[in-house]
């Protein structure tokens, strides 16, 4: 059974009287298997983050549905407690908490015993290169370090599914690459199901084994399996990058764009 099922998903905003209706998600249907690392790419404002918010359960669809382990996250919100975690573009750390206390946040909510909270949060911080910074406040840390704390906070609850919403987008390339690589190494060990929203095609190709290309408003333009792509072949990666770029720019499905471009 797939870990995530998306069926005829549609999301519109402005459904109140007198408001202008905006379609954020036109129609999405696909599945994501357990421990798959999937990236979602598309133009800015194409509904990627809206999709992620529905997946997280903090927003609900206008029609269609999303199932996470057979549960609709926005309907049975609490049933996914501890199973799903997100890392956002901004670190979203609580400024009054130290790095350790921020990393503990999810564990506190799950009601994990205090000693274990401390031990698990500290372990993840150390693993992400933040040993010696447990008692530092977010204002005392660099952007990359704060994002590491955010990652530790998400990973500490040991979720089955982890969502990234352009989580490395505002970091410099060196820091982002290091953080991505740290996460991918962890992901191989922990077998997380990962959904990574990004506008960075190189990040998508390098980090994931499947790319979903969203049109604007969100509809599936391409579903590219990267298992057959030799990522060490720069020419092949370049061609793939060009292909995805063409699909995004034309806002048309892969088949039609592919026929024109290649």
């Amino acid at each position: 059974m797939p870990r995530i099922v998306v069926e005829n998903l549609r999301k519109e905003f402005g459904q109140q009287k007198g408001e202008q209706r905006v379609v954020a998600i036109e129609e999405l249907s696909f599945t994501i298997e357990e421990s798959e690392i999937v990236s979602i790419v598309g133009q800015t404002g194409c509904g990627k983050s809206t999709f992620l918010r529905i997946l997280l359960g903090v927003d609900s669809p206008t029609s269609g549905r999303v199932l996470v382990d057979g549960i609709e996250p926005y309907k049975e919100f609490d049933k996914l407690k501890g199973k799903i975690a997100a890392v956002f573009q901004e670190d979203r750390l609580l400024p009054w908490r130290t790095a350790l206390d921020n990393a503990k946040l999810g564990l506190e909510i799950l009601g994990i015993p205090k000693e274990e909270q401390r031990e698990r949060a500290a372990r993840w911080l150390d693993r992400l290169g933040l040993a010696g910074f447990h008692n530092a406040y977010p204002s005392e840390l660099s952007g990359g370090m704060r994002q590491r704390v955010a990652l530790a906070r998400a990973l500490a609850i040991e979720p089955a599914i982890i969502l990234f919403d352009e989580a490395f987008g505002h970091l410099d390339e060196v820091t982002a690459a290091r953080l991505r690589s740290d996460f991918l190494n962890l992901s191989k060990q922990q077998r997380y199901t990962t959904v990574m929203i990004t506008h960075n095609l190189d990040e998508a190709i390098e980090s994931t084994n499947r790319i979903l290309v969203f049109g604007r408003p969100a509809k599936l333009l391409a579903d590219i399996n990267l298992s057959y792509v030799d990522k060490s072949d720069l020419a092949e990666v370049y061609r793939l990058r060009r292909l995805i770029q063409s699909v995004i720019e034309s806002n048309r499905p892969l088949e039609s764009v592919g026929a024109q471009t290649f």
Partner: peptide
Amino acid sequence: RHLREMLVSFRPSKNQLVRKLILPAIV
């Protein structure tokens, strides 16, 4: 709003939301 959304994504109880976010934020 982004802090509230982050906390809600962990699925806290109302009591936890008040204790961990609202009260410290209004200090």
